[in-house]
Design a binder for these strands. Structure first.
Lengths: 119, 119
DNA sequence: AAGTTACTCAACCAAATGGTTGACAACAGC
DNA sequence: GCTGTTGTCAACCATTTGGTTGAGTAACTT
């Protein structure tokens, strides 16, 4: 895995267990033990998942046994990236639509309607 | 990796090369060869990256040599997930702030100011 | 101070990932 | 209908990932 910030955040959220941890932490802070309880994997496995989330900056803790807290600001990193390219793509499709519409308008003028095209 | 849709999308975007492909495709459709040109990895590697993006529903093609097209709607999947938990977390923090503010107001009434606290 | 509880570290394992090279398939152009 | 170009498939390799178990550390409790 690449180690840049955005890559770590996306990679962290690519795992359904970790997404579920984030979902639960959005309702309430919780300790590692509390977080681990619902899953049928070992506590160590959940501890590792939390480390991945922590390395991505998605969660934090003040000390070992302190409740884990969601760092929701990191979401902005993602939404900014997404919005940028989504917007760019949509603008492009709008221009394409406009172009097609323009071609539709122009054609009858340049190539007058035949019988089949007439209303 | 889990095979649910959201996992595939996040995993696909966890790689910087694939994010760059998406970024470039947001400006213009392009063939596999065109997309591969700027990178110093093999064409096969880029072809694999595109397959990952395609399996995630992020890009599509009409035929093998046709230009690759970005499917920007998939971004909505992510933003919906993100927004939901970001919003939930933020509301919770607002309630926490409100609670703290309330406690600040209440304390002087319940526990009258001692000398040190007085203005 | 000692014991329990809560968590992490370390070593290991199987499977997935990102890359390679070589052979193959499919489509344009002559 | 060949031929060259474009892209994919297959096999392989090193590294990473997500899981395990066992041992260790750190912090409450008494």
């Amino acid at each position: 895995m690449s180690d840049d910030r955005l890559s770590r955040v996306f990679a962290a959220l690519a795992d359904p267990t970790r997404r579920d941890l984030v979902a639960r932490l959005s309702s309430a802070d919780a300790t590692v033990g509390e977080l681990a309880a619902p899953y049928d994997v070992s506590l160590q496995a959940v501890s590792k998942h939390l480390k991945v989330l922590e390395d991505a900056g998605l969660v934090s803790r003040e000390s070992r046994r302190a409740p884990v807290r969601l760092e929701a600001e990191v979401f902005d990193l993602m939404t900014k990236w997404i919005d940028r390219y989504q917007q760019q793509a949509e603008e492009r499709y709008q221009r394409l639509d406009a172009l097609l519409a323009e071609m539709q308008e122009d054609r009858p003028a340049r190539e007058p309607a035949r019988e089949e095209d007439a209303s």
